[in-house]
Design a protein around this nucleic acid. Structure first.
Lengths: 185, 185
DNA sequence: TACCGTTGCCAACAAGTGTTGGCAAACTGA
DNA sequence: TCAGTTTGCCAACACTTGTTGGCAACGGTA
C-alpha cells in the first residue's frame, strides 16, 4: 500500500502520451521529446520517472488480452465470440496497436507479443481443441489471422479491409478462427 | 538501350545490401552507413546513385507478386495454389519482408503494399469470385491472412508458426484462402 | 520557522543521422 | 597523348536523438 504521490498525474500523462505516440509512429519514430511535449512536461522528467526509452515503452505497452471464459458457450459459436472479443480489444485501446507497430522492429516488443498469444490464447485453445497437444499450433494460426486483420485494417489501412463494418468482418473471420480452434487439420 | 556503365556493379551491390538491411531492420534502423559498409563503398556513393534514403528504399522495394494464371486450374485447388505461391514468393526473396517491415512506419511503403494487393490479387479475385463486385473485399481478406501469416512467421517469429513445415502450413491456410476467394459470405 | 525530499525546467553533452562539396584516381574517347 | 567524364573517398555540415547534471520552486514535517 503505497501512498499516492504528487507526481502520479504526471506519470499518467506521460504514459498516455507515450501510448499514443508509439501507436501512431512506432518505437523509433516516437521521440521522448515529442512524448514529453504531448504530456506538457520536460523530456528530462520522462527519464527520471521511467529511466530510459525502452523501459518507458515497456510500461506503456503493458497489456492484457482479457480472454473471455468460453466454458459453457455453444461450441459452434466460439469463432464468433473470439473474433468479436479481439476486435473490441483492438478498438478500445491503442496499446495493442503500439505493441504491434513496435514489435516489427523491437525484439522486446516482439517477445511480449509472443508471450501474449502463448499465455492467453494457448490455454483457451487447450481447453476447446480436440487434442490439447495441438493447442500452441491452433493459437498460432489464430494469431496469424487476427494480427493480419489488425495489420491490414489499422496499420496498412487496406481500403477494402477498412471499409468492412464490424458484423461483416466477424462474418468473414469467425469461420476461419472457428476452424483453427476446433476444426480437423 | 543504354550502354552498361562501369558503376552498375556498385549500384547492384548497394541495392542488395539495402534490401538485406531494410528487411532485417526496417526503414529507420537501416542506416545509409550500414548499407554502404555492407556494399563496401562510401556512404556518399549511395546518395549519388539514389539521391536520398527514400528513393533508395523505393528502388530496393521494387516488387512483383507474379500472380500465377489460374484459368484452367481446378476450382477447388485455387486456395492451395495461391497459398503455395505466396509462400514461395516470401521465401525466395527478402524484398517482400523489407516492404512489410517498412510499411508499418513508412506511409510510402504502406501505399505500395496497398497497391500490390489491389493491382495483383484484386484482378485474380475478380476472375474467380462468384460476384466480381466483391473482388476487392475478397482480395483484402486474403491479404489479412497471408500478410498475417508472414508477420507471425518471419517478423514476430511466433514459435508454433515458425515450426510449421510447408505442407502443414498450406493445409491450414488453403481452406481459408479458398473460402475468401470463392466461398459465400 | 527551518529543514529536506520532491517536482520541474534549463542547458548541455556525446553519439549518430542523412546529406553535401571537393578532390584524387581511373577510365574513355579522340 | 590528352582533355573530359566517371567513379570513389574523405571530411565536414546541420540536425536530431537519448540522456545527464545542476538549480530553482514547491510542499509537507518537525
Amino acid at each position: 500500500m503505497t501512498a499516492p504521490r504528487r507526481s502520479d498525474a504526471t506519470r499518467a500523462a506521460i504514459l498516455t502520451a507515450a501510448r499514443e505516440r508509439f501507436a501512431a509512429d512506432g518505437f523509433e519514430r516516437a521521440t521522448i521529446r515529442a512524448i514529453a511535449a504531448d504530456a506538457r512536461i520536460d523530456p528530462s522528467m520522462v527519464m527520471r520517472y521511467y529511466g530510459n526509452k525502452e523501459r518507458l515503452f515497456a510500461a506503456a505497452a503493458e497489456f492484457d488480452l482479457r480472454m473471455p471464459d468460453l466454458t459453457g458457450a455453444p461450441a459452434d459459436q466460439l469463432g464468433t465470440l473470439l473474433v468479436s472479443h479481439f476486435i473490441s480489444r483492438w478498438e478500445g485501446d491503442e496499446t495493442l496497436l503500439a505493441l504491434l507497430r513496435a514489435a516489427v522492429t523491437q525484439e522486446a516488443a516482439a517477445e511480449r507479443m509472443r508471450g501474449l498469444f502463448a499465455a492467453q490464447v494457448g490455454p483457451l485453445a487447450a481447453r476447446v481443441a480436440p487434442d490439447p497437444a495441438e493447442a500452441p499450433t491452433r493459437a498460432g494460426m489464430i494469431a496469424t489471422q487476427m494480427l493480419g486483420f489488425a495489420l491490414c485494417r489499422f496499420v496498412l489501412r487496406l481500403p477494402p479491409v477498412v471499409a468492412l463494418d464490424r458484423e461483416t468482418a466477424i462474418a468473414w473471420l469467425a469461420p476461419t478462427v472457428q476452424r483453427y480452434l476446433t476444426g480437423t487439420i
